[in-house]
Write a protein that binds this DNA or RNA. Structure first.
Length: 811
RNA sequence: GCCGGGGUGGCGGAACCUGGCAGACGCUACGGACUUAAAAUCCGUUGGGGUGUAAUACCCCGUGCGGGUUCGAAUCCCGCCCCCGGCACCA
């Protein structure tokens, strides 16, 4: 009897897969299935989060292959980014070399875990062959007015020394390093994600295969809010004041206006009103960062005219008005908005109720704002309307007079992609004193990263390259300067899934025909932390590329699985806490198949998984038991070809039960994997089958049943299953043969144990033939002596019979 | 505050969609076998309480809390509590 030598076995099959190029797939597959896992940043070491992510992906890929699909399961590297550059600054390393070395190392680690990638499709985003297409796409967007340059307040991460997009700031902290983000005025390039806000929302209808949680997060992030834009005339001024409101129905109740302290008219309005000093004092307090509340504000000395009733209302500057939402100015209706109410009370501004809650009169004086809907009062010709109708009518009324219009406001901002860092895609723009902003012409792409740079903190490294910065204007030929910012690395990952379909394409980002054959990705797998970053950007890119005519589909990822985190003792693993479990160590100690098995068994994929070494040992024990079972029953299990037994030919209870259990298990595992990738329950079913195999082993069913078990476990523990099948002399290995078939009928027992209840409580169990008629079940139930006892000679009130399940006797 | 997800043994989790034996499967713990001994392995017990026996057995309670629907509720409905996540002076 030989021991289960996972080390040797795993090495052997990994070599076999590599040598025979088992996981390559044709560009034009007949039966395509695209499984994609979020590619890693090549930090040099894989961690448990990667292992979990890639194990799920690999099991899905192997399962679908066995189902007969042509599976594309590619892998690549999110190879631009800060760590390489920091290594260059701190250790004088070459960022490219550092990155490529890491890639080599991680590739080996992935291979040791037995992942079945199409390595010939590998992409590395820091190569000019890849990033030149970032540049191309950017220029196309520029042409279509989807990219623009602007100077605004941006998020600055002092640690990363770069600007961040709004999505990359979480609770005022940098998503990557958790530093507090600062506000800074800076120029930069933006992509018009807002132009697609509506589609990004609408097309969620097509994303039935996404977790509701992620869709909800994106919905919140986009923050659609339908309302109206309304223009207010200013007294003695040419300018108008534009506001956004969701409550145009309360327009008659607007008794003041409020501007954000950052509004461009904030200072200007006060000029010549005698309020200059108060305004100036307030703004200085505000600018110094003083803590303020809803009550804080100052009168500008000016008035605006409410367009609907021509009333003059005072204009204030108020701390509670945000510059970044709507127009940075609001019409204030204290009777119907809590904040406006508080401000009005504190600053002695009149409060005028214009909405009355269903059938009631608003109390006088008003104790609090009524923010609900109702019937319009004090609203001139619009009085008597309900809120909803009034909103439409008033918007119409304004539009006819050119004073406003119905509009939709979004929380989503355009995506700022400029990064003041070296290790990224150069933005292909040239600044010429004569011609202004000039795009780099196609034939000059790629704009490559220069090597004559000095790696230092504190400044944009690209600036230090004379060779790079100094250039000629493509239009006029005079000397000009290149843009020295690089692109956000999320640009790379926004379209990489399409590049995998034609990774070596050299005349365009990807071959549309090939991409349309694979895209959208059938199953995408990754962490939920990308819900409002990568997953939103990729959806945006996909729609843009569709509108360029490059893709047919509306969405990049049909189904999305967001796997949970890997924890240790309920805590996130981190180097600083020193509670990191090293995948390599685990794989060395128990083998890749065990690590894979445990990872998939310990929790459903979308939940967090607490790493538990005793659980790992349990998984290892299961494989060893299967191995030993083979060793002990080798002769009876051996077979060249696997033939499913036919039920009528079976003799004996054990054979029949094992036959039934095997069919049942195939059904359960197939459903678990196909519908929701619930590997944990699928594995539990396999363990049950093994338990039954031990209890009910017979030569006539055993060999087949054991072979089926290998098929079912193959996606999870591929080395093990192949090895065992080979030892048994199977002509075709689990990795090559089809997913087993089953029938519902064969999975159903001839005799079924049904429960007999009295008043809903189980009192007895009897065995009846499957499909037993109701009358017979009822009769048999009443015959039971235990039931008789409860009946106590009296007649049952009612009897409920559920075929093949139970009889409930009501007394 | 608004929205989404969740609450089941000592632990991870199953059954929830589609009402019908709660606790599958695994881990831990305990007891036993094997061993000079230990590890490994194997067998048994493992929600709480009780009755009973050599033993098979039997009864009551139990899925966050309170109500409802139903012959029957972890599952469906209503109200509440708690936890996790997203958004948040968003006009």
């Amino acid at each position: 009897m030989t021991d289960y030598d996972y080390e040797e076995i795993e090495k052997k099959w990994q070599d076999y897969w590599e040598k025979n190029r088992k996981y390559e797939v044709e560009d034009k597959a007949e039966n395509p299935f695209y499984v994609l896992v979020m590619y890693p940043y090549p930090s040099g070491r894989i961690h448990m989060g990667h292992v979990r992510n890639y194990t799920i992906g690999d099991a899905i890929a192997r399962f679908r292959r066995k189902q007969g699909y042509d599976v594309m399961h590619p892998m690549g590297w999110d190879a631009f980014g800060l760590p390489a550059e920091n290594a260059a600054i701190e250790r004088d390393a070459d960022p490219g070399e550092w990155t490529y070395d890491n890639i080599e190392e991680m590739k080996e680690q992935l291979a040791r875990l037995g992942f079945s990638y199409c390595w010939e499709r590998e992409i590395t985003t820091c190569t000019p062959e890849y990033y030149r297409w970032n540049q191309k796409i950017f220029l196309e967007m520029l042409q279509e007015d989807l990219a623009y340059r602007d100077t605004t307040a941006v998020n600055w991460c002092p640690e990363c020394e770069t600007v961040l997009a709004n999505e990359q700031v979480q609770d005022d902290l940098c998503w990557r390093c958790d530093s507090v983000v600062e506000e800074k005025e800076q120029h930069g390039w933006f992509l018009k994600t807002t132009a697609y806000a509506e589609q990004l929302l609408e097309d969620m209808e097509q994303l039935g295969g996404w977790p509701e949680r992620v869709l909800e997060m994106q919905r919140n992030w986009i923050g659609r809010s339908p309302g109206a834009r309304i223009e207010f005339d200013l007294d003695e001024q040419e300018e108008k004041l534009t506001v956004f409101t969701t409550r145009a129905d309360t327009l008659y109740g607007a008794t003041f206006m409020a501007l954000s302290p950052q509004h461009r008219l904030a200072r200007e309005l006060a000029r010549g009103t005698g309020q200059e000093q108060s305004v100036e004092r307030f703004l200085e307090r505000w600018e110094s960062g003083e803590e303020m509340s809803t009550k804080d504000g100052v009168f500008t000395g000016r008035y605006a005219v409410n367009p609907i009733n021509v009333e003059e209302i005072p204009i204030y500057i108020a701390d509670y008005v945000l510059i970044e939402y709507g127009t940075g100015a609001i019409m204030s209706v204290p009777a119907h908005d809590e904040r406006d109410f508080e401000f009005a009370r504190h600053n002695d501004i009149s409060i005028k109720p214009v909405i009355s809650p269903a059938g009631k009169k608003p109390p006088q004086p008003l104790e609090e704002a009524y923010t609900g809907e109702g019937e319009l009062i004090n609203s001139g010709s619009h009085s008597g309307l309900d809120s909803e109708t009034a909103r439409a009518k008033i918007a119409n009324w304004l539009e006819e007079r050119n004073l406003g219009a119905a509009t939709v406001s979004y929380r989503l901002r355009d995506w700022g992609i400029s990064r003041q860092r070296y290790w990224g895609t150069p933005i292909p723009i040239i600044y010429c004193e004569e011609c202004g902003v000039v795009p780099v012409p196609d034939e000059q792409l790629p704009v490559e990263l220069p090597e004559d740079v000095e790696f230092t903190h504190g400044e944009n490294i690209l600036e230090s390259s004379g060779e790079f910065v100094e250039t000629q204007c493509p239009d006029c030929g005079r000397s000009a300067r290149r843009e020295t910012d690089t692109m956000d690395t999320f640009v790379d990952s926004s379209w990489y899934y399409a590049r995998y379909c034609s990774p070596k394409e050299s005349s365009q980002p990807f071959d549309s025909e090939l991409a349309n054959n694979w895209v959208p990705v059938d199953q995408y797998i990754g962490g939920i932390e990308h819900a409002c970053m990568h997953l939103l950007y990729a959806r945006f890119f996909h729609k843009v590329m569709r509108d360029f005519g490059w893709l047919d589909s509306d969405e990049p990822f049909t189904r999305l699985l967001t796997q949970g985190m890997v924890l240790l003792d309920g805590e996130k693993m981190s180097k600083s806490k020193g509670n990191v479990v090293d995948p390599e160590e685990m794989q060395g100690e128990y083998g890749a198949d065990t690590v894979r098995l445990f990872t998939l068994f310990a929790a459903p994929p979308e939940k967090d998984l607490d790493w538990d070494e005793e659980g790992v040992q349990g998984a290892h024990r299961f494989l060893k038991r299967l191995w030993n079972f083979l060793q002990e029953n080798k002769e009876q299990l051996s077979a060249r070809t696997i033939k499913a037994p036919v039920e009528p030919e079976l003799s004996g209870e054990a054979s029949k039960e094992l036959f039934r259990k095997t069919h049942e298990t195939i059904g359960r595992v197939t459903r678990d994997l196909e519908q929701s990738y619930q590997f944990n329950t699928a594995i539990a079913a396999c363990m049950e089958l093994y338990n039954s195999l031990q209890d009910n082993f017979t030569p006539e069913v055993g060999a087949w049943s054991y072979a089926v078990l290998l098929d079912l476990l193959y996606p999870i523990a591929p080395h093990f299953c192949n090895e065992v099948a080979e030892l048994l002399g199977h002509e075709e290995l689990p990795g090559e043969r089809d997913w087993p078939e089953w029938s519902e009928e064969a999975a159903t027992a001839d005799e079924i144990e049904v429960v007999i209840q009295v008043n809903g409580k189980v009192r007895d169990r009897i065995s009846v033939p499957a499909g037993c008629p109701k009358e017979m079940m009822e009769e048999r139930a009443l015959e039971s002596s235990r039931i008789q006892k409860y009946l106590d000679g009296s007649k049952p009130k009612k009897i409920i019979v559920v075929p093949d399940k139970l009889v409930n006797v009501v007394v």
